[in-house]
Structure formats: C-alpha cells, structure tokens
Design a protein around this nucleic acid. Structure first.
Lengths: 349, 349
DNA sequence: TTGAAAGCGCTAACAC
DNA sequence: GTGTTAGCGCTTTCAA
C-alpha cells in the first residue's frame, strides 16, 4: 500500500520501541509538564532517531483543530491574484503561519462559488481561521463568516459593514491626503487622480483622502481629473493621454500604483513632457522594497507601505484570534511612508 | 466546546436520523454501486437538507489520502513570490485543484528550511502530491522527492538532473531563438540579451536559444551584450543605460520580461532614442492577457505564454499522477506565441 | 443490499 | 509520573 511506503513511524510504534504507553510518548512530545525529565529526553531522542513526524490528520481529528488557515481567492477578480500586492501579502502571512506550525490553505475558486467555499472549508474542518482579501465597499463575506463562527481577519476594511470585525489595513486615506497636500504645497492646483477600481474599499478611501486635501485647500475637485480602473500599465497610459488632452490638463498626477505610473510616464514622455520639470507624479505602491536600491525611479515620489509586513502582521493577529476564540476583534492601521525621489516636480501653472 | 459550534452534522447523526447504518450512508454518499437507488436518493436528500459536509480530517485518516497538494515557496528567493508569474501559476493550478476537490497547501518557508518542509509535509501526511517551483540548473529537490516516493511535478526543468521526472515547461529556448531570429531578419546584428538570473534553469535556456540563433546566423556573441539579474524595472533601466554607453551599442534588445522592458524603455527614452524607429525591443512575458486589449504597448514585440494555463495544465498532470501513483513521468512542453506590436523596429546598422 | 466491528494515529479523561 | 480506556468521524473488511 502506497500509504505505508510514504508514512513514517507512528506514535504507537515509537511507544512500543520505548516500552512506554502511547500516552506518555504523546505527552513527552507535546511538552506536557507531568512527564519525567529523563523519560521526555528518551522519547525525544528516540523520536528524532526514528525520524518521527506526527500525522497531522490524526492529530487534527483528535484535537478538533486543523492547524491550518484558509485564504480564498475568487478568480473572476482575476487581476487580484496577478497583483503582486496580493502575492506578497500571502508570502508575509505564510512566513508566520509556518513559523507557528500552521499550514496555509489557498482556495482559488470561481467568484460565484466563493461563499460555498467558505462554508465548505469551515464545515469540513479544513481550517481554523480565514483571511478575507480585497473587501468591497459592501462585502457580504464578513456577515457570512461571523455567522459561521470562525475566527477571521480582513485585509482592508469594508465601509458598508457596521458590526465590529477584525481587520488590518493601511491608511490609504491618509496616504493620499498627504500626497495631495505635498503636491499642493508645490503649487499645483490641477492634480489628477488615477485611481484603482472604486468598487474596492481601498480605492474609495484613497479618493476621499485626495478630496479631503483639495477641500482643505479650498480647491474644488474637478471630476474630469479623476479616473478609476484596474491598475495596469495601459490604463495609466490611456488615462495620462486623455488627461493631457483636456483643455486644462493637470500639472500633477497621483497614481494608484507604480505600474500605473509607468503607463502615465509613457503618456507624458510621448507628449514631450519631462517628469520633474513639466509635471509631478506621486505613485502609491504597496511595496517598493523589491526594487533594488529602494526607489530607484528618480522622477517619482512615492507613498509606500510594505505589504509583506502587513501579511505578517495580519497572520499574527489571526493566529491570536484562533488561539483565543472569544477574543474581541483586533484592528490595526498601518501608516504609509512618503518616499521622496530625486526630483519632486515643479508647478507649471 | 468551540468545535461543536462550528462543525455540522456528522455521518453518524445522519445515519441515525435515516435509521440506516453509517456504512450505508457512507456508501451512498461516495457513489458505491451496491447501494439501492432509493436508499441512495434518501441519503442524498437528507444530506443536502442537513447541510452535511464530510469532515476531511476524518476522511483523510481513514483513507490515508489528504486530498491536498502542496506548493513550497522558499522566501529567500523573495522576488519569486512577488513575481506575478508565480502567483498566476498558482492561480491556474488552484482552479483545477478545487474543481477536483483538492485543497492547495502553500508553505512559505526560509530557504534553508525548504528540504525539511518537504519532508514534513510528506511525513505528516498533509499532502498527496507536490509542485516544485523555480528549478535551478542543479536542483536537489527532485532527488529528494523521488526518495520520499511522493508524486510531484516540476514547473520548469532542471538541466542538471538526468533521472526522469515529471515536468511542465514553456519552450524558453525556442522562444528566445525565434525572437532573436526575428531581430536578425530585421537586419540587426548587435542584439542585447537582458536576461533573468542565470542560476535559474529557464534563464539559461533562454540564453541558449539566443546563442543558437546568433550562431546559426554566423554572428559571434558579444559577452558585453549579455546581462543577467533579477527581473525588475530598475535592472532594465541600468542594463539599458550601460548597454547604450558601449562603444558599439546594440540596436536591438531582448528583454526577459515586460517589467524589464519598461526599465529598458526608460533608458532608451532618456537617451533620446525612439522605440521602433531607432531601436527594436522584444520582451518575453509569461502572461500578457492581464493587459486590456492584449499587447497594448505598441513599441514592443513580445513572446508570451499564458502561465495561468500552465498552472492549470500542471495541476491536471499532477492530479493524474496522484491518482495513479505508479504512472510513469509526465512531461509537457508549451510553445510560446510571438505577439507583434504595431511597430516592430527597424535596423539602424 | 445492508450492517457490525475494527481501525486509521492521535489525544484526553480518568484512574493508579 | 505513567497507563488504561475511550473516542475524534470516517472507511472498510467481513458477514448476513
């Protein structure tokens, strides 16, 4: 039987070999205090020698815990998984899971099946906790999971949900407010917002930060200067081209991601404009650390937050919740950094 | 006990409710033929009504199968997870796993722990099969997994490994050979290769495709025209700048990814060169489909392969192996497409 | 066609 | 400190 071939020693066999009961061996291995120090050492040595690894399935069944955390990725939101942000968050979270001895279960499912997937994962006992990605303004998953009674964390927030729940978010609103203020301080008055999809909660928050700053400066927002779409290079290019074609083009741009900024740059270059001389661009990116030498893109100023760190933190919080099921909701707001490039742009108005 | 709260009906309860034995219910649910059609229907109805979901842990323990596939991601290769290619492959694979009723277990671990992680996953019975990512020229993981006797698939190949194993790869060599031929046909003779890390097997294959084409054309490769590093925008920029500063700069570029091409483009633009007029660039990208309108970057020609499809295919193959443990190794080579942009460049020599 | 009984590998009362 | 016993929820002989 293939099974035998793969699996190693069992606890029972180990116990027999040691002339001990399975119970004692289990206790020794799991650090129960009542075990004799010598016995424990004997057991640990023998386990190591026999290359013993406990069977998690059996352990799970006996304890009622799976020691796994689930992440559900709906695939119709196809760009999300493609998005490095998403991947990096998973990477950060995964680090902490494995350190804590937890597995990460990733479910990639069609959008329509998402709810069923949550139900399944929980009912089948596959996971002890769940991470929710990419919350919308109105997100039904939160109520669903609260109903299922399983610990979960949301990466981001859902403005439409009023009951308390656990989340970790970066301060998108503040980030875009500060970036806008920065451009205003440079003398810009026509500042374009090339935003992500505004059905996503984070994009709405960015927008409201931008609007807040304009409002505080007594500048009426111009709807023509606000764009919203999936964050891709071509989108940045198209938005840039269209914005520059306006009767009164913007003199500064707020880009929702670096990749959008690349597209924007293409449009600006095509139009014969020079970044940092004719126009200013501030890009937001969730992680610039993957760029050698940090922000090695002198024309851009950037607001950034390490999404990897966010993943780590979110995992840590979720594991806390899993360990203490009756713990009240945990929340964490991460501030972003404003990273200055070599040239920050000049007012052209 | 929290456990009770979350878990649904058990098979035993269902059996009691139906006045049947657990055995029969199990058989009915799992499609065993010997069950009376009426009984089966009754069971299925009741199961649906009670919202019954089998506990996977128990099922696993009883059957010796976990119905889960593992993917191990070493984090020191930090850029790999950041890499959309990786994420997209996972997404494709995940689709097929969930369709087949398998879970995907992702382990993100420090580089040094990678081998231990494989051993653990197998010994603890957490997975029925494994996917190996980012093979190096010499990759010890293949021998390790063969020793462990668990079905596995490699995404890519390891040239240094001679024993047969299952893999899925895209034809990197052919892709770069064709791209080079294309540039040669345009009249270019000084073609730069801005490659990925050549400790990675795929990068070496790309290089050899490039060299093959040059050789066939009777052109001696110039070491000064070949670069290799992590595929980032700044790398593309730096490489471009340096290459253009050569006494005899290249007139065409082969970029290892779109993001590298963006950096390259920055360098070219800075130097006052116009893509498609002064220089030609061909970029390879594993998936351009996430760009609306396909290749909406007219200056570039691209060779591409859908990595998502690769993930799907690899998962399908792996599941075949998991289902038939004694199946001989499966291999699959995917061809890439040469996608022509609007302008493909002109020879300047 | 159905059921009884044993067992997957481990943990957790409860005794001793 | 250690062992005995029962059981987690399911599958699987074997018998009926």
């Amino acid at each position: 039987m293939r099974f035998e071939q793969i699996m190693g020693v069992t606890l029972k066999e180990l116990a027999t070999k040691l002339a001990l009961s399975p119970t004692t061996v289990s206790r020794a291995l799991n650090g129960y205090p009542e075990v004799n120090a010598q016995t424990r050492q004997r057991v640990l040595d023998a386990a190591r020698a026999a290359n013993y690894h406990p069977n998690m399935r059996a352990k799970s069944l006996a304890t009622g815990q799976s020691r796994a955390i689930g992440h559900v990725i709906p695939i119709s939101t196809s760009h999300e998984i493609v998005n490095p942000i998403f991947a990096d968050f998973i990477a950060g979270a995964g680090e902490n899971y494995s350190r804590a001895g937890y597995d990460m279960v990733l479910s990639v499912v069609p959008d329509a099946d998402e709810e069923a997937t949550y139900r399944n994962l929980v009912a089948r006992g596959s996971v002890d906790g769940l991470m929710v990605h990419g919350p919308l303004l109105q997100d039904s998953r939160i109520a669903l999971l609260q109903g299922l009674g399983i610990p979960f964390m949301v990466h981001g927030r859902s403005s439409g949900v009023n009951t308390p729940y656990s989340w970790l978010d970066i301060n998108n609103r503040r980030s875009f407010c500060r970036a806008t203020e920065f451009l205003l301080d440079l003398g810009h008055t026509r500042i374009a917002l090339v935003n992500g999809l505004e059905s996503m909660d984070f994009a709405m928050r960015r927008r409201s930060g931008y609007l807040d700053a304009l409002h505080a400066a007594g500048i009426a927002p111009d709807p023509m200067l606000m764009r919203s779409s999936e964050m891709t290079e071509p989108y940045g290019h198209k938005a840039g081209r269209e914005l520059l074609a306006l009767p009164q083009p913007p003199t500064a741009f707020l880009a929702s991601s670096m990749i959008v900024a690349y597209g924007l740059r293409r449009a600006l270059t095509d139009a014969g404009l020079k970044l940092g001389r004719d126009v200013s661009v501030i890009a937001h990116d969730d992680d610039l650390s993957y760029m050698p030498n940090g922000l090695d893109v002198p024309q851009f100023t950037a607001t950034c937050s390490s999404v990897r760190a966010a993943g780590r933190k979110a995992a840590e919080m979720l594991l806390t919740l899993v360990g203490n099921p009756d713990h009240p909701p945990l929340t964490h707001l991460m501030e972003t950094q404003l990273v200055l490039g070599y040239s920050t742009g000049r007012n052209r108005t």
